[in-house]
Write a protein that binds this DNA or RNA. Structure first.
Length: 803
DNA sequence: GACGACGACCTTTTT
DNA sequence: GGTCGTCGTC
C-alpha cells in the first residue's frame, strides 16, 4: 500500500486514507478521481474487508469494468471480481431478483426499456380516449419518471397538490390516472421499468426491515461515484444502507452535474453535510489532464454559474495552445472544417485517430460529421444514437426471449404476436387487449382461454392464436435445457424469422441478417465467458438483464484499428482525449432551445460545455455554423452565448478577426462583421427581424404549393453576420413561388471565369478551376478551402463571386 | 388483414 | 432528413 500511495498527491492521499466515517470528495475535472476510488477500494481490501462487503456504485457499466480491471492489477483479480461494483440499476436488479417473493413478483420480472414504457403509455392514452396531441407520450413519460424518482406512488401523486396543479396548468390533469393504470399494467405484465428498479428497491427496504438489515450488514463500506448525478431515489437507497455504520464515501463534482433531466438532484451533493454532519470534505483541485489554457478557459466559463461549491481547479502542465474557434457558413462546411483540422493536426504531430473526439449536443448532429469523415477517408466510430439493441430485428428476437421467460410481458407479446405475420391482426389484438383490461389479467391469460373471457373470434383465428401459444410454450420449455445461443438459433428457425429474412435478397434483409448474426455472436460470447468464469448455469434472465441495462459506452465492440470518436457530450462524461472538437456552438442547439426557460437549466447547459472542454488534454477546438439544416429546413443560427462566457484571451478566432482588436464587441462579432463588410455581396442592405419572420412564414405557406422544396428556397436566403437574413434581391410573392424563388436565388454569374474566387452558400470560399459547357448544362469545377474539389451545375449552384 | 403512400412531427441529453 | 402513424386500396 505504501508504494501505491507514492502515486498520489497529498489531497488524494488524504481522501484515500480517510475511512472511519462519511466523506465527500469533490473531484474537479481531471483530478484523478478514478485513481482515488480504486486506491481507496484497494486499501479497504488490504485492510481485510472482504470484497463482497464493499458496495461501489458507478454511473456506467464501463466505469465499473475499468475500475475492476485496475483493482485486479492492484490487488488481485478474484477480489476485484467479487466486489459489488456496478450501476445502481444493475446491482439493485440483482438484489430485487434475489428477493422476488418479498416484492410480490414471485415468478420474476422482466425489464421494460424506455421504448416499452412509452409504447405502453401510448396504449393507455389511447384506451382512455385522450388526445395524444395534448397527452404527449414523452411528456407523460417524464412526469411519471420524475414522480418515481421522487418516490411518489400513483396514490401519492393523486393527492400531491403541486404536481396536480402543474398538470392542470399543462392541460394534462389526467396524468395521475395514466400513472395509476401504467403501474397496474406493468405489474400485470410482471415488468419493471428503469425507475422501478430503484423505486421497488426502496419499497423493499421500507417494508422489509429484516431484508434491509441483511444488506446493511453485508455492505460494510459504500462508495458512490458521480454523486452529483444521483436522484432522490438513489440517495435514499444509499442513505438507508449506510445508516448504521456511516462508512460511506461519495465522489463527484457539482460542476459536472448534467443529468437533471433524468431526475438527478444536485442538492444531494450540496447537502451532503446535512445528511452526514460529521462527514469530512476533501477537495481534489489539481487537474492532471489538461493544459493550463484549457483549465483556465473552463474555469472562466463555469464562473458564470451562480450555484456551486467553491473550488479552484488548476493545472501545472504547460500553457498549451489557445482554444481555436472555427466559423463555418453551414453545418455542412462545419463538418469539412473539422475533418480538415483533424487531418492537419495529425499530419503535424502524428497523433493516432484514437486521440480525437468530436462532441456534439444532440445525436442528430453526428450525420454531418460522418459524411465529412467518410469523404476524407478518415475512420470513425459513432457512439449512441440508435443503438444496436434498439434495431427492429434485434428487438424482435429479444422480445421472443422475453416472452418465453415471462409470458405476461405485454410489450413483448404485442411485438411478436404477428411477426412474422401469422394472421393475427389489429382487430383480434384489440379484442384480446380489451378482454385483458376488462378482467384485469395479462394478454397471455386471455390467449390461453379466449372464449372464457368473452373474446368473439372465428375458428380460423382461434387456431392461429392456439398455434402462437403452443409455439411460445415450446420455447418456454427449452429455456432450462438450452443456453441463450442455442435457444435463439432454434427460435429463429421455428418462428419463421429465418425464412422471412431469406425470402429475398433486398439490402434491408441482408443488413438485418447481419445484425442477427452479430446478435448470435454476442450471445455466444456471453455464454462462453460465463462458462469460462466457472458459471455452469447461464440463465436467460442474466442475458436479458445485461442487454437491457447496457449503456451506450458499453457497446464499443473493440473494432480493430484506430478511429476518431463521435459522441454526445453526455456520453463523453468521464472520458479524456488529446484532441477535442466541440461542434454546433449555436443558440438553440447549445444551449438547447429547451433550456432557455430557467436559469437552472441554462446553468446545466453551461456545465455541459464545461464537461466537454475539460475532456481535452492538449487541443480543444470549438466550432459553429451560421446556417444549419434542421427539421427539414435550412435555418440561420446565431453563435452560442457561451462563446462570450469564455475568457477571450484564451480563444483563437479565425484569421480575419486577428487584424482587428479595437473595442469591446466579442471576437466573433468582430470577425463576422468584418467578414461580411469585405466579402458579402449577397445583399445590398440588411433587413429587420420582421422581414425574416415574414419570409419564414411564407416559406411554410409555400409548402402547400407543388413546386420547390422548402430547403431549396430557404437555403438561398443570404444571411447577415448576426444570423438575421439579409433582404432578398427580389421579394417572393405567395402566388407563384416557384418562379420567384428561382429568380431570387439564381446566382449572378456575370464575369465568372477560371480562377475567380467565389463564396458558396454551403461549401464556403473556393477558387474556380474550370468552366465547361454552356447554358443550362454549364458546369464549374471549384476547389473549396474547406470542402475540397467539387463539380457544380452552374444552374443550381448558389454562390457570389468575390474576385 | 397486408401493404404501400403520404403527412405530421420531430430533437435534447440516458440508466 | 427520418420515423411513426394514418389512410386507402387490394
Amino acid at each position: 500500500m505504501n508504494n501505491i500511495l507514492d502515486n498520489l498527491n497529498n489531497s488524494q492521499k488524504d481522501a484515500v486514507l480517510y475511512n472511519s466515517g462519511p466523506s465527500l470528495v469533490i473531484a474537479g475535472a481531471g483530478s484523478g478521481k478514478t485513481r482515488v476510488l480504486t486506491y481507496k477500494i484497494a486499501g479497504l481490501l488490504q485492510e481485510g474487508l472482504p470484497p463482497w462487503s464493499i458496495l461501489a456504485l458507478t454511473f456506467t457499466n464501463k466505469a465499473a469494468r475499468e475500475m475492476k480491471e485496475r483493482i485486479a492489477t492492484l490487488v488481485d483479480p478474484e477480489s476485484a471480481r467479487r466486489l459489488w461494483m456496478g450501476t445502481f440499476h444493475s446491482l439493485f436488479f440483482r438484489i430485487l431478483r434475489a428477493e422476488t417473493e418479498a416484492i410480490g413478483f414471485p415468478g420474476g420480472f422482466t425489464i421494460y426499456d424506455t421504448s416499452d414504457s412509452k409504447s405502453l403509455l401510448k396504449t393507455i392514452i389511447k384506451e382512455m380516449g385522450l388526445d395524444d396531441k395534448i397527452y404527449k407520450v414523452n411528456a407523460v413519460y417524464s412526469r411519471i419518471s420524475g414522480a418515481k424518482n421522487d418516490l411518489i406512488s400513483p396514490e401519492a401523486y393523486a393527492s400531491n397538490g403541486d404536481r396536480i396543479k402543474q398538470d392542470i396548468l399543462c392541460k394534462r390533469p389526467l396524468i395521475k390516472e395514466i400513472y395509476l393504470r401504467y403501474v397496474n399494467r406493468c405489474r400485470l405484465a410482471s415488468a419493471m421499468d428503469f425507475d422501478d428498479l430503484l423505486f421497488q428497491t426502496n419499497v423493499l427496504f421500507r417494508d422489509h426491515p429484516d431484508i434491509l438489515a441483511k444488506y446493511q450488514n453485508l455492505f460494510r463500506f459504500i462508495l458512490v461515484d458521480e454523486y452529483q448525478d444521483t436522484n432522490f431515489s438513489q440517495y435514499l437507497i444509499v442513505k438507508k444502507l449506510a445508516d448504521n455504520h456511516h462508512r460511506i464515501c461519495v465522489v463527484g463534482d457539482d460542476s459536472q452535474s448534467i443529468y437533471s433531466f433524468r431526475g438527478a438532484n444536485i442538492e444531494n451533493i450540496l447537502n451532503f453535510k446535512n445528511t452526514y454532519p460529521e462527514g469530512k470534505l476533501f477537495k481534489l483541485e489539481q487537474n492532471y489532464r489538461s493544459t493550463q489554457t484549457i483549465v483556465n478557459a473552463a474555469n472562466s466559463l463555469i464562473s458564470k454559474n451562480k450555484s456551486q461549491i467553491p473550488k479552484k481547479v488548476f493545472s501545472e502542465k504547460e500553457m498549451g495552445n489557445r482554444i481555436k474557434v472555427l466559423t463555418a457558413y453551414s453545418d455542412l462546411e462545419e463538418g469539412f472544417m473539422v475533418a480538415n483540422k483533424i487531418n492537419e493536426i495529425r499530419l503535424s504531430v502524428f497523433d493516432s485517430f484514437n486521440d480525437f473526439v468530436i462532441l456534439y449536443r444532440t445525436n442528430a448532429q453526428s450525420r454531418i460529421f460522418e459524411e465529412a469523415l467518410r469523404k476524407r477517408n478518415l475512420p470513425y466510430r459513432v457512439y449512441g444514437g440508435l443503438s444496436f439493441y434498439q434495431r427492429k430485428e434485434i428487438k424482435d428476437v429479444i422480445a421472443y426471449l422475453r416472452l418465453s421467460l415471462n409470458e405476461d410481458d405485454e410489450e413483448a407479446f404485442k411485438r411478436v404476436v404477428n411477426y412474422p405475420t401469422r394472421g393475427i391482426g389489429e382487430t383480434t389484438m384489440q379484442k384480446i387487449i380489451h378482454a385483458a383490461s376488462e378482467h384485469h389479467i395479462s394478454l397471455w391469460k386471455v390467449l390461453q382461454t379466449p372464449a372464457e373471457y368473452g373474446v368473439q373470434i372465428n375458428s380460423g383465428t382461434a387456431k392461429k392464436l392456439e398455434g402462437f401459444r403452443l409455439f411460445i410454450e415450446s420455447i418456454h420449455q427449452q429455456v432450462g435445457a438450452k443456453n441463450v445461443y442455442e435457444l435463439t438459433g432454434q427460435l429463429l428457425i421455428d418462428s419463421g424469422i429465418q425464412h422471412e429474412l431469406n425470402a429475398d435478397q433486398s439490402p434491408e434483409n441482408m443488413s438485418r441478417k447481419e445484425n442477427i448474426q452479430e446478435l448470435l455472436g454476442g450471445m455466444h460470447e456471453f455464454v462462453a465467458s460465463r462458462i469460462e468464469e466457472g458459471n455452469d448455469a447461464v440463465f436467460l434472465t442474466d442475458y436479458l438483464q445485461e442487454v437491457s441495462l447496457l449503456t451506450d459506452q458499453d457497446e464499443s465492440k473493440n473494432e480493430q484499428g484506430e478511429r476518431i470518436t463521435l459522441m454526445t457530450i453526455h456520453a463523453a462524461k468521464g472520458l479524456e482525449f488529446k484532441n477535442v472538437f466541440i461542434a454546433g456552438l449555436e443558440e438553440d442547439i447549445f444551449p438547447s432551445a429547451h433550456s432557455l426557460e430557467s436559469d437552472r437549466q441554462l446553468e446545466e447547459e453551461r456545465r455541459l460545455l464545461y464537461v466537454a472542454i475539460t475532456r481535452a488534454e492538449s487541443v480543444c477546438v470549438l466550432s459553429y455554423a451560421k446556417s444549419r439544416f434542421r427539421n427539414g429546413q435550412n435555418n440561420f443560427t446565431r453563435p452560442s452565448r457561451f462563446l462570450k462566457d469564455l475568457d477571450p484571451h484564451l480563444l483563437d478566432y479565425p484569421t480575419e478577426a486577428a487584424t482587428s482588436h479595437s473595442n469591446d464587441t466579442s471576437s466573433f462579432e468582430r470577425e463576422s462583421s468584418l467578414y461580411w463588410k469585405s466579402k458579402n455581396r449577397f445583399a445590398e442592405k440588411s433587413s429587420s427581424i420582421s422581414d425574416y419572420r415574414e419570409n419564414r412564414f411564407k416559406t411554410s405557406a409555400w409548402k402547400e404549393s407543388p413546386a420547390p422544396s422548402p430547403r431549396t428556397m430557404q437555403a438561398g436566403s443570404p444571411v447577415s453576420a448576426t444570423g438575421k437574413p439579409l433582404k432578398r434581391l427580389s421579394k417572393p410573392s405567395t402566388n407563384t413561388p416557384a418562379t420567384n424563388a428561382n429568380e431570387a436565388f439564381a446566382s449572378n454569374t456575370t464575369g465568372l471565369k477560371a480562377d475567380s474566387v467565389i463564396l458558396h452558400e454551403r461549401f464556403g470560399q473556393g477558387r474556380v478551376k474550370s468552366i465547361e459547357g454552356v447554358g443550362d448544362n454549364a458546369k464549374i469545377e471549384v476547389e473549396f478551402e474547406n470542402s475540397g474539389y467539387r463539380k457544380l451545375l452552374l444552374k443550381f449552384a448558389r454562390f457570389t463571386i468575390i474576385e
